[in-house]
């Protein structure tokens, strides 16, 4: 229950994107290194915590998943509050999910309270080989929106870790975001320092 391990930053990262693009799989692959072929919509998982070390800094990530709740837009918009990083996921084999990215970005604009939250575009399911969206296209879109683009497969594990580290790096590179993070979680950091000696590490 208590804060485990010591960390330099506590970041809130949100996974968004159309239903079925593999947000939950991505999350589970990253946090638990597991993959379920036939996953139902996420049930029971509110968020997962994972500590990563990027550039010598330890960042504790709370990663939030909104899978299956897309229908209740107004309610899920409260997830955006205080978000430092946004991972925007689409399925490279389904053009529709790529076409909806603009809407997701608008939503983000409207609801995110932390200005300039670090954004990362992730094309998932590259293992399926039924591509409808090319790398070039996705890269161009990402560049236009000042985002990085990464291709991953939650199934084969390809690129997953890199994707999350990319987000952390981007947050670390943005002074405003760091300020927001420390401002919000000062107590957490204080606590971490106090309990740091317990030697528990949540990074697994």
């Amino acid at each position: 229950m208590a804060y485990a391990g010591s960390f330099d930053h506590l970041f809130k990262v949100l996974l968004i994107g159309d239903a079925g693009v593999g947000k939950s799989s991505l999350l589970l692959r990253f946090t638990d290194d597991s993959f379920e072929e036939h996953m139902a919509s996420t049930i029971g998982v509110d968020f997962k915590v994972k500590t990563v070390v990027v550039g010598g800094k330890t960042a504790k990530l709370t990663i939030w998943d909104t899978a299956g709740q897309e229908r209740f837009r107004t309610l899920t918009s409260s997830y955006y509050r205080g978000c430092h990083g946004i991972i925007l996921v689409f399925d490279v084999n389904e053009r529709e999910t790529f076409n909806h990215l603009q809407q997701w970005l608008e939503e983000l604009d409207m609801y995110a309270t932390v200005q300039n939250a670090a954004k990362l575009l992730v094309g998932n399911k590259i293992d399926l080989q039924q591509r409808e969206v090319t790398v070039e296209e996705a890269t161009a879109f990402a560049r236009k929106q000042a985002m990085m683009y990464v291709e991953v497969s939650a199934k084969t594990r390809a690129g997953v870790r890199q994707a999350f580290e990319e987000v952390v790096q981007k947050i670390l590179d943005t002074p405003d975001l760091l300020a927001a993070a420390s401002g919000e979680t000062s107590s957490g950091i204080g606590l971490a320092k106090q309990e740091g000696d317990t030697g528990l590490c949540s990074y697994c």
């Binding site: 229950m1 208590a2 804060y3 506590l10 809130k12 919509s41 996420t42 049930i43 029971g44 509110d46 968020f47 709370t62 299956g68 709740q69 229908r71 209740f72 309610l75 899920t76 409260s78 997830y79 509050r81 205080g82 919000e184 979680t185 000062s186 107590s187 957490g188 204080g190 606590l191």
Partner: peptide, 30 residues
């Protein structure tokens, strides 16, 4: 007071306050 609460409960206040919203959205899924 809030710091104390966050320390004893192990979660930031924001997480606590959003729980009802999350739970509500989960019922249809379940």
């Amino acid at each position: 007071a809030v710091c104390e609460v966050e320390q004893t409960t192990g979660q930031p206040m924001g997480s606590w306050l959003i729980k009802p919203v999350q739970r509500l959205c989960k019922y249809p899924l379940l």
